[in-house]
Computed example of a mutant assay.
Amino acid sequence: MSATDHTPTHDPSSQCARLLKHLKKHRRITNRQLISMGIFRGSARIKDLRDEGWIIVTNRVHRGLFEFVLVGLRDED
C-alpha cells in the first residue's frame, strides 16, 4: 500500500489530519511550524501518525528546533 492509498482513521478537521495533509504536500515540518498551525503538542500528533503506520523521522536542526520528515507508510504484511 502506498502513502497516497492510506485512509486515515481521524476526522478530516483534526490536528492529525491537518498535519498529515501538510506532510504529504511538503514532506517535512518543524516544531515551530506546528505551533503556527495551532498544534501545540506536535510530538504527540507525530506519535499518533506513527501509531497509524506512517514512517516519520525526527531530525534535530539545532537547539529547540526539530524537523519531522514523512518517509512513507509502513507495509502491512
Rank of each mutant, 00 (worst) to 15 (best):
S13F: 08
R32T: 14
K24T: 13
A3H: 14
Q15T: 06
K21A: 14
L23Q: 05
G53D: 01
I29K: 08
K24N: 12
P12I: 01
I46N: 05
E67L: 07
H26T: 14
W54S: 00
H22L: 15
D51M: 05
E67W: 08
T30L: 01
G72W: 06
N59V: 15
I55M: 07
D48M: 06
I39E: 00
K47S: 15
K24H: 10
R41L: 11
F66L: 13
R63M: 04
F68I: 02
R63C: 04
D48H: 09
G38M: 10
R50A: 07
I46A: 11
Q33Y: 06
R45D: 04
T7Y: 00
F40N: 15
A17Q: 03
L73Q: 11
S36F: 10
H22K: 13
R32S: 14
L23C: 02
R63V: 02
D11C: 05
H22Q: 12
H62L: 10
F68Q: 04
I35Q: 11
R74C: 08
D11I: 01
H10A: 10
D48E: 14
P12Q: 01
S13V: 09
H62Q: 12
D51L: 02
R27D: 13
L23D: 04
Q15R: 08
S14F: 01
E52D: 08
R45G: 04
G64V: 02
H26L: 08
N31P: 03
T58S: 11
F40L: 15
L70F: 07
V57C: 09
T58C: 11
D51H: 02
W54D: 03
T58P: 09
E67Q: 08
C16F: 03
H62V: 09
Q15M: 05
S36P: 06
S13L: 12
I39F: 02
S14A: 05
E52F: 00
K21V: 11
E52G: 03
S36I: 09
G53N: 01
V69Q: 06
